[in-house]
């Protein structure tokens, strides 16, 4: 048992370190975006393509999913498998809605001729936002696996994994807040 507690500490430290490195990855993409955001090569500026209400809805969905994820974790102590699975599923549903909205936004931009090939600003926009979206997709697979595992093996077995997942999900939320501010709000204001 001593061994297992030790494992949990080790895993959570390792995961923290991973998140820090992921932070650097996003920081690089943010830097690229900051350098290239005005390099539209004569095309319209990014700000004019942004729909504020739409992105705000996305933001609210994701923020809410962070809340449901933490409720799922806090329900571990109650030992109620059903509650944990319910809140985890809610998290997934919100995450999927977010992702669908994002894909929808992307398709629309491409259709209107503002795809990633249009200019450097669009390239950096799609890459930054898309990388976050990819992380969300990975998180969804992870959450799905956790639901399945919790069903099969019981709560005790997934407790630590669930905590790591929620760390990951909150992290993506923070990244999104940065994207929302740096990409969308700044775009709207300029």
């Amino acid at each position: 048992m001593q061994h297992k507690i030790h494992d949990a500490q080790k895993n959570s430290l390792g995961f923290w370190i991973y998140l820090m490195s992921d932070c650097m990855l996003f920081a690089t993409l943010f830097a690229a975006f900051a350098v290239l955001r005005n390099n539209t090569f004569g095309d319209v500026s990014l700000g004019s393509l942004v729909n504020g209400g739409y992105v705000l809805t996305q933001t609210i969905l994701l923020l809410f999913s962070s809340y449901t994820a933490s409720v799922a974790v806090s329900n571990i102590v109650t030992g109620s498998l059903k509650k944990v699975i319910f809140w985890l599923s809610a998290t997934m549903a919100l995450g999927i809605s977010f992702l669908v909205m994002e894909i929808n936004e992307f398709t629309q931009l491409v259709h209107e001729g503002h795809g990633w090939q249009a200019n450097a600003a669009m390239s950096s926009f799609f890459t930054l936002v898309g990388t976050h979206g990819l992380h969300i997709a990975v998180g969804l697979i992870w959450a799905g696996t956790l639901v399945w595992l919790a069903n099969r093996r019981g709560l005790a077995k997934v407790e630590n994994k669930l905590k790591l997942f929620s760390m990951y999900w909150h992290f993506l939320d923070v990244v999104w807040i940065c994207i929302f501010t740096v990409v969308y709000l700044r775009g709207l204001m300029s």
Binding site: A32, L36, F41, W116, Q117, A118, N119, A120, S123, S124, F126, T127
Partner: peptide, 8 residues
């Protein structure tokens, strides 16, 4: 894409 191309 056009991150590091000369043009665009």
């Amino acid at each position: 894409m056009h991150f590091f191309t000369s043009a665009f």
